[in-house]
Amino acid sequence: MLRGKDTPAREVRALREEGHVPRKSLGQNFLVDPNLLRKIADAAELSPADRVVEIGSGPGTLTELLADRALVVYSSEIDRGLLERQRERLRGRENVIFAPGDFLEFDLAGAAAGGKMVVVGNIPYRATARILERLMVHSSCIRRAVLCVQKEVAERIAAPPGSRSFGRISLLVRYRARVDLLFRVGPSAFRPRPRVESAVIALRFHDPLPVRAANEKALFDLARALFGGRRKMIRSGLRNYRPLSPEALRRVEEIARVDLRARPEDLDVEAWCRLSDAVEATG
């Protein structure tokens, strides 16, 4: 448990006094509100048997809360100076494993040890898309993820089909997981303060998938192409994606049971899978 109400803020002040300057290139905005840290740890819904990976663990304040609740916590941090600070703070915590380096290269399957893990993190804004894509690739070994991201990105991820915000990242995540937008986090909860608001989302990964595309790579390639021409009809996007004749487009429409006059954001996950399968079968 955190030792005192202001412990996270004191930890960040101590880092500054020791000469550590938050690195903008790494998205280092440390969450210092102890109540919000506890809410994130609570949202992870951990049991004493859970294995946890924390992304960008910084000074280790959230790591400490996670270690109180889980079997083991892998503390992934690219800044080796911060990781050394963590080692001092968490000395004696035998269930914390320090993992220096980029999370994008972290061995998720190895950490899961044949089971399913929980992923928690205050995500660097610039790396959000790449981190989400990596989590989706390894979704078979993840039970739940609780992530603090930029509020605008959280709203896009959680956007339902048919809304203007529904896009490729919404589809990518909803294909693999149920998405819940939990709560917002204001700039004052961080040091240094970011210029934008944040939000915490929870992803509960499907097992098994409720709907599956015959070729998942083809599905996401198609989504990238069609969402690249937002507000255009699917028919127009398909013509640019693949040279399909008018007759082939009619077959796609019939097989997929999708109106090609619709726009990409109008389709739900199941319709996207049917469309991708139909394009592959026809093309």
Rank of each mutant, 00 (worst) to 15 (best):
L71F: 14
L71A: 15
V72L: 09
Y74N: 13
E77I: 04
E77M: 11
I78R: 08
G81H: 12
L82I: 07
L83D: 02
R87A: 09
E88Q: 11
R89C: 09
L90F: 07
G92W: 06
G92S: 08
G92I: 01
R93L: 03
E94Y: 13
E94R: 14
E94H: 13
N95T: 10
V96A: 07
V96G: 06
V96F: 02
I97K: 15
F98H: 09
A99P: 04
P100M: 10
D102W: 04
L104M: 03
E105I: 03
E105S: 15
F106T: 01
F106N: 03
D107F: 02
G110T: 06
G110C: 06
A112M: 05
A112G: 13
G115W: 07
M117V: 12
M117R: 15
M117S: 15
V119H: 08
V120P: 02
G121W: 09
G121T: 07
N122V: 05
I131V: 14
L132H: 09
E133A: 13
L135E: 05
M136R: 07
M136G: 02
S139V: 04
S139M: 10
S140R: 15
C141F: 11
C141D: 14
I142V: 14
I142W: 05
R143H: 12
A145F: 02
Q150L: 03
K151R: 14
E152T: 01
V153L: 02
E155S: 04
E155H: 13
E155G: 04
A158T: 00
A158E: 06
A158F: 00
P160I: 05
G162T: 10
R164K: 15
S165N: 12
G167E: 14
R168P: 08
I169F: 01
S170P: 09
S170L: 08
L171K: 02
L172D: 02
R174T: 05
Y175K: 04
R176T: 04
R176Q: 09
R176K: 11
A177E: 07
R178W: 15
V179K: 06
L181K: 01
F183I: 03
R184H: 14
P187T: 08
S188D: 15
S188E: 15
S188Q: 15
F190L: 02
F190Y: 12
P192M: 03
R193W: 12
R193A: 11
P194I: 06
R195E: 08
V196E: 03
E197G: 15
S198F: 10
A199E: 05
A202F: 00
L203W: 04
L203Y: 00
L203C: 01
R204N: 14
R204L: 11
F205C: 01
F205W: 10
